[in-house]
């Protein structure tokens, strides 16, 4: 589904490489987790996959359903079925959340040759989603992420995920900043959305969320690349021994 081949990435205005030979293959219907210390390049990776032009791919490529998408803009990647739940979602004042969601939804409908939803019909779709996800309806009347608490922003990302139904979703530290109840709700929502046709890449700092969403593979990322991959038990080991131990082991 998503295939990343020996990716080298640097920040647009600096010379330093952030990703240094990152490779990953995410198959259809699978859940992969990436764990790694702060600054190892996890957010950079997710933004590069989503098409952030602040980063430059110096070598390697990203394939989505076999197609090289490295040169596509963010809009096109999204329309193909990619989704990124941001670690730090931005606030957009004055843009109503429900209207934004309808814009995004209709853009996708149009791309797929499906009918666009008018505001009334879309209201029904939205209310169904907010009910399923246990998200307060008043989220819809507010401006996009504007004045949302950290946790509310994360839940709003999940609402967008549910509305857009992507085939590959990347969740960048969606669990951090959530209290235990919110974490459970978010995990439940993801488990509901998960099926044999879509894939999830869950980026996290802590093993905690993996108690609720069972990953098929766990990768450990350090200094811009994957240093170890294994079954879900790897996450528990990491949680107990810490990254330091692993770093020593490697060197």
């Amino acid at each position: 589904m998503l295939e990343i081949n020996d990716l080298y990435v640097k920040c647009a205005d600096e010379d330093l490489d952030i990703l240094k030979g990152f490779s990953l293959t995410l198959e259809k219907g699978k859940v992969h987790a990436i764990m790694g210390p702060n600054g190892s390049g996890k957010s950079t990776l997710s933004k590069v996959i989503a098409g952030d032009e602040n980063y430059e791919i110096t070598s390697g490529n990203i394939r989505f359903n076999g197609e090289d998408i490295s040169d596509y803009d963010a809009t096109k990647r999204s329309l193909l079925g990619l989704f990124l739940a941001f670690q730090y979602p931005v606030e957009i004042p004055g843009v109503n959340n429900a209207e934004f969601l309808r814009m995004a939804y209709n853009s996708r409908q149009k791309h797929n040759g499906l009918p666009e939803a008018d505001p009334l019909a879309f209201q029904d779709i939205l209310l169904k989603k907010t009910n399923e996800l246990n998200i307060p309806e008043e989220f819809l009347d507010r401006d996009l992420n504007s004045g949302f608490s950290g946790g509310e922003k994360k839940r709003n990302e999940i609402l967008q995920l549910a509305v857009l139904e992507p085939s590959v979703a990347i969740l960048d530290e969606t669990d951090s900043g959530l209290d235990i109840d919110a974490l459970k709700q978010v995990s439940e929502a993801i488990n509901q959305l998960k099926n044999e046709n879509n894939s999830f890449l869950i980026i996290t700092h802590y093993q905690r969320i993996l108690n609720y969403i069972e990953p098929d593979v766990v990768h450990i990322m350090m200094d811009g690349k994957i240093v170890e991959s294994g079954p879900k038990e790897l996450a528990i080991e990491l949680d107990q021994k810490g990254y330091d131990h692993l770093v020593k082991l490697k060197s």
Partner: peptide
């Protein structure tokens, strides 16, 4: 903000 534009585009909205 380029980050605002990127955010909306990453939801399939054109530039």
């Amino acid at each position: 903000g380029e980050d605002q534009l990127f955010y909306l585009m990453s939801r399939g909205i054109s530039l």
